[in-house]
C-alpha cells in the first residue's frame, strides 16, 4: 500500500520501519546467496577440515591431524610460498599497469575508446580459452613470443645471443609467465581506476595547470594521493583474488609445473588434493588456511579504510 494509507503522526516510526522492511526485502536475495554460497560452505569446510573424508565413505574424526600434516607437507609449503610470492609480485604490477592505463586513457581523444576496449578485452575472455591462448603464446619453439624474441638472432637465440625464456620448462620463467598472463586481466581494476580518475574534480587539475605544476608534480602531489585510498583497496582486493585467479593458468597452462611444483599455488593444491586424490578433509584444511589469508587481507583493508577516513576527517 502507499504512503497515503498511513495515518500521519500517529506512529512516527512507521515510514522508517517500512523503509527498513523494504531494505531487508531487497537484501534478501543477497543474504540467501551469502548464506547458501559462502557461509554454509565455509562452515562445511571448517567441519571437513577436522575429518578424514574422501567423499565416498562417511567422514571420520581427525582432529587437528590435517593441520599438523599440512605443516609437514613440503608440497603445501611450496604452494603457500608460491601463492604469497605471486601476490607480492603480481598484485603491485597489475595495479600499476591498471593505473598507468587509466591515467593514459581517461581523456577523450581519438582512439581512446578502442584502446579502453583493448585493455578490457582479455578480462572478458573466458578463463580456459585465455589459458589455452597463452599455452600457444608461450610455446618455446613455435610460440609467437619466442619467435619475436628470436628475431635478429641465430640458431634459436635472441639478438643478444641469449636463449629465449623457456616459459613452460624453467621454473622461474614459468612463474614469470603466470604473472605475465595475469597482468592482462587487470581490466576490472583498470575500469575502477578509470572511473576514479574521471571522478576527480577537473578544476583541481586546472588549478595545477595555472600553477605550472609539471606532469610529475601533478601525479605525485595530486593524482596519487587522491587515488591512494582506491589504489589501496584495489590492491587488497586483488591480493585476495590472486589466491583464486592463479588457478586456471596453473591448471591449464603449466599444470602446476615445471616439476616439481614451480607453479603449484594454493588453489591448485586444494583442487588436486580434493578432486584428484579425494582427500577432501586435507583439502578443506588447506582451504581454511587460504581463508585465513583472505581474512588477514580483509582486516588490512578495513584498517586502511579507517585510517583513510580519519585522515580526511570524513
Amino acid at each position: 500500500m502507499s504512503a497515503g494509507d498511513a495515518a500521519p503522526g500517529r506512529r512516527a516510526a512507521r515510514p522508517d520501519t517500512r523503509a527498513r522492511r523494504q531494505l531487508a526485502l531487497m537484501l534478501t536475495p543477497y543474504l540467501i546467496g551469502l548464506v547458501g554460497l559462502v557461509m554454509v560452505p565455509a562452515l562445511v569446510t571448517l567441519g571437513m577440515s577436522v575429518t578424514d573424508y574422501d567423499l565416498l565413505r562417511p567422514p571420520t574424526w581427525a582432529g587437528l591431524d590435517n593441520f599438523a600434516a599440512l605443516l609437514d607437507d613440503p608440497i603445501f609449503r611450496v604452494a603457500l610460498l608460491n601463492s604469497v610470492v605471486f601476490a607480492l609480485v603480481a598484485v603491485p604490477l597489475r595495479v600499476l599497469l591498471a593505473l598507468g592505463l587509466a591515467l593514459l586513457l581517461h581523456r577523450r581523444a581519438a582512439g581512446v575508446g578502442t584502446a579502453r576496449t583493448a585493455a578490457l578485452l582479455p578480462t572478458a575472455v573466458p578463463e580456459i580459452a585465455y589459458g589455452l591462448l597463452w599455452l600457444w603464446l608461450f610455446n618455446p619453439l613455435y610460440g609467437p613470443i619466442n619467435q619475436l624474441l628470436r628475431v635478429g638472432g641465430e640458431n634459436g637465440l635472441t639478438a643478444f645471443g641469449r636463449t629465449p625464456p623457456q616459459w613452460l620448462t624453467d621454473p622461474t620463467s614459468a612463474r614469470a609467465g603466470i604473472i605475465l598472463m595475469s597482468l592482462f586481466t587487470m581490466g576490472e581494476t583498470f575500469v575502477v581506476l578509470l572511473a576514479a580518475r574521471r571522478a576527480l574534480p577537473r578544476d583541481v587539475y586546472e588549478m595545477a595547470a595555472i600553477e605550472d605544476a609539471t606532469g610529475w608534480d601533478v601525479f605525485r602531489r595530486i593524482t596519487l594521493p587522491l587515488l591512494a585510498p582506491v589504489l589501496a583497496l584495489l590492491a587488497v582486493r586483488d591480493a585476495v583474488a590472486s589466491l583464486h585467479f592463479t588457478f586456471v593458468p596453473a591448471f591449464v597452462v603449466t599444470d602446476g609445473g615445471p616439476p616439481p611444483y614451480a607453479t603449484t599455488y594454493l588453489s591448485l593444491f586444494v583442487y588436486q588434493t580434493g578432486f584428484e586424490y579425494l582427500r577432501y578433509g586435507y583439502a578443506a584444511a588447506a582451504t581454511l588456511v587460504m581463508m585465513l589469508l583472505t581474512v588477514a587481507a580483509v582486516l588490512v583493508q578495513w584498517r586502511l579504510i579507517r585510517r583513510y577516513r580519519r585522515f580526511y576527517q570524513l
Binding site: G36, L37, V40, P41, V44, T45, G47, M48, T51, Y53, L55, P58, P59, Y280
Partner: peptide, 17 residues
C-alpha cells in the same frame, strides 16, 4: 549426524563444482 554432514558436504561440493 553423519548423514547430515554428507549432505552438507555434497552441497558444498556442488557449490564448488
Amino acid at each position: 549426524t553423519i548423514v547430515r554432514i554428507r549432505s552438507l558436504s555434497a552441497l558444498a561440493v556442488s557449490a564448488l563444482l
